[in-house]
Computed example of a mutant assay.
Amino acid sequence: MKKNLVQFFNQPRFLRHVLNWYGPYRGAGVKVKHLADDYSSATVEMPLRWYNRNYVGTHFGGSLYSMVDPFHMLLVMNQLGPEYIVWDKEAKIEFISPGRGTVIAHFEVSPEHLDDIKAKTEDGQKYLPEFEVEVRAEDGTLVAKAIKTLYVRKKPQKAKS
């Protein structure tokens, strides 16, 4: 029974629902529309509402950033598995044009990127891979670009007794 429960909680579908009910995301109007079964990609969107617009009537920058904040870490962490430590290390966001209407961000972590991370952490060293994500309006207009730097390290092997 315990194994089935753990498997249930580790399903992408369950995580997507948890994120959609997560208070800060509900408060900003962020919705996780897609989370791939293998954690290789995710799509998040946020419509413009009275509670997430700024003083001039466009998307609040903090909400734009919050919609992209955890996803590369979650994708990498779940693809690499429990033998790795994965944390957000650094972030930068550049606001390109005013966000009006619904904005969308799509995240991908390719097998090649994972292979690179594994190769650079195999000896126990930390690695700081960077991931870029674009936030676009429904018509394709670029609203913002974010660069996320992760901290990744393979966990030390426990001594066998």
Score class of each variant (00 low, 15 high):
Y84G: 05
M1Q: 07
P98S: 00
Q157H: 08
P47Y: 10
K33D: 14
E130W: 09
K158S: 10
I96K: 15
P24Q: 09
T141P: 00
Y39S: 02
D123Q: 05
E122D: 05
M1G: 12
K160T: 10
V133Y: 03
H34N: 07
S40Q: 10
W21P: 01
N78Q: 12
A146T: 13
G29H: 05
L75M: 08
N4V: 03
L142A: 05
L48F: 04
A144G: 00
F14K: 01
D139E: 02
K33A: 13
Q125C: 05
P111H: 03
D139G: 03
E138I: 06
A159W: 06
K145P: 03
G29S: 05
V109S: 05
K118H: 07
R153T: 01
F9L: 13
N20H: 07
K155C: 08
L5M: 05
K89L: 04
V56H: 12
W50T: 08
G99A: 12
P129N: 04
K2V: 06
G81W: 05
F60D: 03
H59R: 02
G101M: 08
K3H: 06
L15C: 09
V56K: 12
M77S: 12
V76H: 11
P156R: 09
H72D: 03
K31M: 02
Q79R: 15
H72W: 10
F8E: 03
K154R: 15
I104H: 13
Y51P: 00
L80W: 10
H72V: 05
